[in-house]
């Protein structure tokens, strides 16, 4: 199949950037979206152009590196699918495909489709952990975790940190990401001692990074490749309220 690609090109963070049009020819429906871009890049290089820069690593939907908005939808709009797992059979010959980077003030563009997601790192560094020193822990079975809690914690812990939730949100809110981490750690007994401190610290850092606020539109849940539920945002709201009431001094 043949496609017309409208791709965001931006040399570096200071460049205002622009769209450029490329033709993707003889694309096999069995290719993944990123393999299609690989091929286009080989052609661009052959034509003495600079290839389109995009993040990808594992290419099996778990590392969370790939990050592009395809036709207005982060990761391209197949339910529960990252861009690297999106295959070309979902497109039709003759389609025009618009490809853009994540758009959020907290995710400045490095180049083309690559954005800087270190804001997520700083949120995690602020409190996304349980403080245990290596070796200073009890036997794993000494702490019982009800199966339901472990399963729910796992639902939240699946987050791959790709940032699609931020990219999809009209307010570029990181609530789903923060909620997933806070929920995971507050659902397991090991996370209880730091529960309040964690919620307050992570929310504070989230605000500082310049993410927007949740207006409950549900776009984050719709594009999340791991289909993490917006319920966790409700849980974060609850956690934070509980935390500031219980421990106003953090």
């Amino acid at each position: 199949m043949n496609l017309t690609l409208k791709v965001w090109r931006q040399e570096n963070a200071d460049d205002p950037g622009h769209f450029e049009v490329y033709m993707a020819q003889d694309i096999s429906p069995d290719m993944s979206f990123l393999e299609m871009l690989d091929i286009v890049n080989e052609y661009i290089i052959a034509d003495d152009g600079e290839p389109i820069a995009f993040d990808s690593d594992c290419r099996e939907g778990i590392c969370g590196a790939c990050s592009m908005v395809i036709n207005g939808v982060p990761h391209g709009g197949q339910q529960g699918t990252t861009a690297c797992q999106l295959h070309m059979r979902h497109f039709c010959s003759g389609d025009t495909v618009t490809i853009e980077p994540w758009r959020a003030t907290a995710f400045p563009v490095h180049r083309d489709l690559i954005v800087d997601r270190t804001s997520f790192e700083r949120i995690q560094q602020a409190g996304g952990f349980i403080s245990v020193r290596t070796g200073s822990v009890p036997d794993a079975n000494a702490t019982l975790v009800p199966k339901g809690d472990a399963d729910l914690a796992m639902d939240a812990a699946q987050c791959i940190g790709c940032g699609a939730c931020v990219a999809a949100c009209k307010n570029a809110s990181a609530m789903l990401f923060v909620a997933a981490k806070v929920s995971h750690l507050s659902l397991v007994p090991q996370g209880q001692p730091e529960r309040e401190r964690r919620a307050i610290a992570m929310v504070k850092q989230m605000d500082k990074e310049g993410f927007g606020n949740c207006t409950v539109t549900g776009a984050c849940e719709a594009v999340c490749p791991k289909e993490i539920s917006i319920d966790f945002i409700g849980r974060l709201n609850r956690e934070y309220g509980r935390a500031i009431l219980k421990k106003g001094n953090a």
Binding site: K6, G72, V73, G77, R103, A172, G212, N213, A222
Partner: peptide, 25 residues
């Protein structure tokens, strides 16, 4: 804050007819 957090809009248009997607984006 929201406006500041997301100053650029997407060029691509969300295709509302997507049979694979259960929830609306």
């Amino acid at each position: 804050d929201n406006r500041k957090a997301r100053s650029v809009q997407y060029e691509g248009v969300v295709d509302p007819v997507d049979r694979h997607r259960k929830s609306k984006i």
